[in-house]
């Protein structure tokens, strides 16, 4: 490093030391502490308000989402037949299915043929 640079370095050091002395910190005002606590409380309130709004928003969004889901589900699934038929029709359909004749191999039908039916 050249001598000129060293001189500049030293001058800068002196200047920065003078700067340190020149930068006197202002005295804290008398209401420093009350204002500080007021700001802390205001920040706390702000946060709880934000949290409350956020929770409200979340609840509203959840409600809207559930209504939409229910609507979507209802639209996607076709209505079963028993919603459009009467009780008797539904009952008949079910009974027919349950009472269908059972075909057993090797067992003759119990139902007599038309020739064997007694005439009235």
């Amino acid at each position: 490093m050249s001598g000129g640079n060293q001189n500049l370095e030293r001058e800068l050091d002196r200047l920065l030391a003078a700067y340190r002395d020149a930068c006197e910190a202002p005295e804290p005002s008398a209401d420093f502490m009350p204002t500080l606590w007021a700001r802390i409380e205001a920040a706390e309130q702000g946060w709880s308000e934000r949290l409350w709004k956020w929770a409200n928003g979340l609840a509203a969004a959840a409600a809207v989402a559930s209504v939409l889901l229910v609507a979507l589900q209802m639209a996607a699934r076709p209505a079963p037949d028993y919603y459009s038929s009467t009780y008797v029709e539904s009952l008949l359909a079910q009974t027919d299915a349950e009472l269908a004749p059972v075909e057993l191999a090797g067992v003759p039908s119990m139902d007599p043929g038309p020739a064997e039916r007694p005439e009235r």
Binding site: R20, E24, P26, P28
Partner: peptide
């Protein structure tokens, strides 16, 4: 720390 912080912030 009030005074020290004031000084640092000021600079």
């Amino acid at each position: 720390y009030r005074r020290r912080i004031f000084g640092t912030v000021s600079r």
